[in-house]
């Protein structure tokens, strides 16, 4: 049962990822990415990482991809006629991507030699355990990441804001 579930989720995530880069319409790309992310969230559940699964769904499917969809709609890019690379560049890109996969597989071939923990702790991925770690051992990175978020928020607003002359132009235009 668990093995079947793993293979189904793996196939769904890989097919979804291929559909992301194959879909002509960027809106379809975002929707395929949602499918891929839900499959990855399923993998987290299988791995006993329940907290990560929930956070993954909330952050990626709930926040980041909505942001992507919102920008696509705002820029009105949801049409089929989007610029495409020349066929030669496409072929070269796919070949080099395949060669990267080949290299990764060759480099990671000996991974089954890694000594793994014999007994798994099923409580590992629960909020209680992760929260304790996050607020004791990893409290400094946690606080720094809040500063990163503040900087990203201010940066996004500042970059996205129209300049004063821009606004005046629009008002004159009206």
């Amino acid at each position: 049962m668990t093995a079947t579930l793993f293979y189904i989720l793996a196939i769904v995530s890989v097919v979804g990822a291929i559909a992301v880069i194959a879909a002509r319409n960027p809106v379809y790309s975002v929707l395929c990415l949602v499918v891929t992310f839900f499959a990855i969230a399923g993998q987290y559940v299988l791995l006993n990482a329940q907290f990560l699964a929930i956070v993954h769904v909330i952050v990626y499917a709930g926040a980041i991809l909505v942001l992507f969809l919102f920008v696509l709609m705002m820029l009105n890019l949801n049409r089929e006629s989007e610029p495409l690379q020349p066929t030669l560049i496409k072929v070269i890109a796919v070949v080099s991507g395949g060669m990267l996969l080949l290299t990764l597989v060759a480099a990671l071939r000996g991974v089954d030699q890694i000594p793994l923990a014999g007994v798994q702790d099923t409580q590992l991925g629960l909020v209680k355990n992760l929260g304790r770690l996050l607020f004791t051992e990893y409290v400094a990175p946690f606080e720094i990441s809040s500063i990163l978020f503040l900087a990203a928020m201010v940066g996004a607003v500042t970059i996205g804001m129209r300049s004063k002359s821009d606004k005046r132009e629009i008002i004159n235009h009206l």
Binding site: S13, V14, V20, I21, K90, I92, A93, G98, L104
Partner: peptide, 13 residues
């Protein structure tokens, strides 16, 4: 590895 390679291919394509 497969997902990562697909991502790299997407950036190039």
């Amino acid at each position: 590895a497969a997902l990562f390679a697909i991502g790299v291919t997407g950036v190039l394509v």
